[in-house]
């Protein structure tokens, strides 16, 4: 096999996949804004995607914040007591909060959406929607995207608070820092932009999570095995896109490189 042909085939396959995802998104997004809007379905998805992800996101944030505090304290002896709260709050709000929450929710929600839509596809339930004059993009895809974009920033906001708490618990109970000055250092150093940039990221990650779940589920084929593959692809592609989008948004918000 000619290695150039192999590379070329891979690139073409990758580009056409990107094109298909883009086309899918172009079909889905306008449906989120055009009536009829299915309020009941959106609320249902907000519960599933947002509310039930709270424990996962909270625990992840708590342990990440704690570990972060411990790492920095051990690494820098001088001035650690003022440095630790500052780095924890920046690290959590700007980067780790949204990224960790994004990855955890991708594992939970992208997989669930892909499995549900994939099963609907192979059992012809999606075709049945069309024959009942209901647009599957509007009925299935749009509510999930709306719910994920709305709830991810809220999840990350709560995760930020819990993550900072995690750092504080480690600082006060394990490193014997003064509680009041830890909190004062945190609040003094934190700027609004740190939090809002993280929340913008969260909204974008929410879009990616729902889109990947829907795209792979909608196009799954071939019975149980196909649904399994769709679920795996949804989680993997959502995770990769989240990390890529995170890099791009970080360089957009905070200036890249120089």
């Amino acid at each position: 096999m000619n290695p150039f042909a192999l590379v070329g085939r891979f690139v073409i396959a990758l580009l056409s996949e990107i094109g298909r995802i883009f086309e899918f998104a172009m079909n889905a997004v306008p449906q989120a804004f055009m009536p009829p809007i299915y309020g009941r379905l959106i609320l249902q998805q907000i519960m599933r995607i947002g509310y039930f992800s709270l424990p996962v996101v909270g625990l992840t944030a708590f342990f990440t914040g704690g570990a972060l505090a411990l790492q920095i304290a051990v690494g820098s002896e001088i001035g650690a007591e003022t440095l630790v709260p500052q780095i924890v709050v920046l690290g959590i709000t700007r980067e780790l909060g949204p990224v960790m929450a994004g990855l955890m929710v991708a594992g939970r929600v992208s997989a669930a959406i892909a499995a549900e839509l994939g099963t609907m596809r192979v059992t012809e339930q999606i075709d049945a929607l069309t024959t009942l004059s209901t647009n599957p993009f509007k009925y299935l895809v749009a509510p999930r995207i709306i719910a994920a974009v709305l709830t991810m920033p809220i999840l990350v906001g709560i995760g930020d608070i819990i993550g900072v708490m995690g750092g504080w618990v480690v600082g006060v109970y394990s490193l014997d820092y003064n509680s009041a000055s830890y909190l004062k250092n945190t609040v003094d150093f934190l700027k609004m932009g740190d939090v809002t940039s993280g929340l913008w990221k969260a909204a974008v990650f929410g879009f990616i999570i729902a889109l990947m779940g829907c795209y792979h589920g909608y196009h799954s084929k071939g019975g149980a095995q196909g649904v399994g593959a769709a679920t795996t692809n949804a989680v993997v592609s959502a995770a990769i896109l989240i990390l890529a989008a995170n890099y791009m948004m970080t360089s957009l918000f905070f200036g890249g490189g120089r």
Partner: peptide, 25 residues
């Protein structure tokens, strides 16, 4: 359309399935 394996929506009850086209469509 009557599908081969019926293709009923498993997230809805039987009557909601039958009424689906009336409510949504």
């Amino acid at each position: 359309m009557l599908f081969q394996a019926a293709a009923l929506f498993d997230s809805l009850t039987v009557w909601e399935n039958v009424a689906f086209g009336l409510i949504q469509g």
